[in-house]
Amino acid sequence: MDSILKISHLGKSYQNAGRTLVVLDDINFSISPGSTNAIVGPSGSGKTTLLGLCAGLDRSTTGSVELNGIALDKLTEDERAEVRNRNVGFIFQNFQLLPTLTALENVMVPLELRGEKNIRPRALELLDKVGLADRGHHYPLQLSGGEQQRVSLARAFSNQPKILFADEPTGNLDAETSEKVEGLLFDLNRDAGTTLILVTHDLELAAKTGRIIRIKGGRVAEDIINKHNA
């Protein structure tokens, strides 16, 4: 397969008070399997909307999204949920852990959803990889921001996703913690051979990826291959 993600003529617009608000317009790119990519752009440029469409969280107005060979636009929301569970991992700026589940349970959920057995050792192994083996029984509220994001990393890799979407993964963390989380993210990604798509306005973080797609005014303004990391 040439590309794990193929975006063709993608557009997204909203109707607001009788006016059409175009957020994304004619976006085209393909992502190779195992690559690391960053979508950058100023606030309001449409990068988060683009991530939502790429990950099958939303439907486009025009164009198509093909993820791991599956045309997402033709699927129902439940079918897209199935695709997400089998192919996609997420990391969010505000961690998005389930507050009523312990760290270990949060990591186990994607696997439980797939009906897999003996998942506890795997989840514990992942927690160990992110340095939180002893915090598995803690609830998100009992963890610091950095720890929560590390649990979130363990959860994102637990279902061995083909593609990982990270929305401003260090946006809510201080510099020191950010560095640790970034390191873990790239290490885990490399070990698992996952395709990584980062959405960020942090150019230093973007520079650590192999490709930078810059969005401006809802269009691809620049698509740069970073030879150092590609």
Binding site: A55, L57, E77, D78, A81, E82, R84, N85, R86, F90, Q96, L97, L98, P99, T100, V109, P110, L113, R114, R155
Partner: peptide, 15 residues
């Protein structure tokens, strides 16, 4: 809503 949205992200179906 946030918790349900997270579950939906991870592949939990509406039903």
């Amino acid at each position: 809503i946030p918790a349900i949205a997270i579950m939906r992200c991870m592949g939990v179906k509406a039903r």
